[in-house]
C-alpha cells in the first residue's frame, strides 16, 4: 500500500538565495524520509471525539481557515457566524489571534504586506484577544459600512483582478506550555503534525486533512498514523483549548483560494484541544 508525505522547504526569498547549497536541505529530506518510514507502518486512528495536540502548522491553518475567513467582512455580510459574535467569547482565554501585516514576534512575517491594493497602509489586525472576538478584516468599503478602520486587507492577485478582502499573516499567539509537557499530559489521544489541505465554512466548521501524526498513549508518543481527517467547529473547539505551547511555527507555501488565488502566511503554536477524528 503506497504512503505519501509532502514537505515544503524554503520560505521568504528567491530560489537562488534559498537553494544555493542543496546540501542544506538534506537534513530536512532525512527527517521526511524517517517520518515516511514510520508512516509506512502507520495505523488508522479510531474515529470520534479525541484529545489532540495540534502541531503549529495545523494551528496556523485553523487560524486562517476556520477563524480568519469567518471574520472577513464580505463574508460577514454574507451571513458568517462571526457577524453576531463580535465582542463575545469565542475561545479559551488562552487563545489570541492576529492577522499580522509585515512583522510578528520581532521578525519579518512570512509574506510581508506594507500597503494593500486599495492604497491603505497595512497594519496588524487583532481578531481574538484572550478568547474575545475583537475585530473583523475589512476593505475600505466594508470598513465604512461597519464603522471600522481599514487595516490593509484589500489584496488583488492578477493585474486584472479586483481587490478582495484577504488575510496576510494569520497566527494564534504563543502560550507558556512546553510541547513535551503537553504530550506528557495526554493519556489517550493524538499528536497531529502535518496537513495536506484544509477547508472551513462560514459556520466555522472546519476539516483538515492529516498526513502525519502519532498516537499518544499514557503521555508518550506511539505509532504513526495513516492519512486521516479531523473536524470541528472553530468557536466551540477553541473553547476546549487548555494548553498552548511557547513556540510558533510559520507556514507560507500555499495559496488561499477565494475567487482569486493569494499567497498568505499562517502560523501558530501547538494547542491541546478536543477534535473529531475521522477513521474506519
Amino acid at each position: 500500500m503506497p504512503v505519501e508525505l509532502v514537505a515544503v522547504v524554503g520560505g521568504y526569498g528567491s530560489f537562488d538565495a534559498l537553494f544555493r547549497d542543496p546540501a542544506a536541505v538534506f537534513p530536512e529530506v532525512d527527517l521526511l524520509y524517517g517520518k515516511l518510514l514510520a508512516k509506512a507502518e502507520g495505523v488508522r486512528p479510531a474515529p470520534g471525539l479525541k484529545t489532540c495536540i495540534l502541531g503549529g502548522e495545523l494551528t496556523g491553518m485553523l487560524a486562517h481557515e476556520a477563524v480568519g475567513h469567518t471574520v472577513e467582512a464580505d463574508l460577514v455580510l454574507g451571513g458568517s457566524v462571526a457577524g453576531p459574535m463580535l465582542g463575545k467569547t469565542v475561545a479559551s482565554p488562552l487563545v489570541s489571534l492576529t492577522d499580522y501585516a509585515h512583522a510578528a514576534f520581532g521578525k519579518a512575517a512570512p509574506l510581508p504586506v506594507y500597503v494593500d491594493d486599495e492604497g491603505t497602509p497595512a497594519v496588524d489586525a487583532e481578531i481574538i484577544r484572550d478568547g474575545i472576538l475583537v475585530g473583523d478584516l475589512n476593505n475600505r468599503d466594508t470598513a465604512r459600512r461597519f464603522g471600522m478602520k481599514p487595516q490593509g486587507n484589500a489584496r488583488a492577485y492578477a493585474f486584472s483582478d479586483e481587490p478582495l478582502i484577504r488575510m496576510r499573516n494569520t497566527a494564534i499567539l504563543p502560550g507558556k506550555s512546553r510541547l513535551s509537557d503537553m504530550i506528557a499530559s495526554v493519556e489517550d489521544g493524538y499528536y497531529l503534525t502535518d496537513t495536506r489541505n484544509g477547508q472551513a465554512d462560514t459556520t466555522g466548521e472546519f476539516m483538515f486533512g492529516i498526513s502525519m501524526g502519532y498516537e499518544i498513549k499514557n503521555g508518550k508518543l506511539g505509532r504513526a498514523l495513516l492519512d486521516t481527517t479531523i473536524s470541528g467547529v472553530a468557536f466551540e473547539m477553541l473553547k476546549t483549548v487548555d494548553m498552548v505551547s511557547d513556540t510558533v511555527t510559520w507556514c507560507s507555501s500555499g495559496f488561499c483560494g477565494k475567487k482569486q488565488p493569494m499567497p498568505v502566511g499562517l502560523g501558530g503554536p501547538e494547542l491541546r484541544c478536543k477534535l473529531l477524528m475521522g477513521g474506519r
Binding site: 500500500m1 503506497p2 504512503v3 505519501e4 496537513t195 495536506r196 489541505n197 477547508q199 465554512d201 476539516m207 483538515f208 486533512g209 492529516i210 498526513s211 495513516l226 492519512d227 486521516t228 481527517t229 473536524s231 475521522g278
Partner: peptide, 8 residues
C-alpha cells in the same frame, strides 16, 4: 469536505 484521498 475532505482531505486529498491517500494514494491507496
Amino acid at each position: 469536505s475532505g482531505g486529498q484521498p491517500a494514494g491507496n
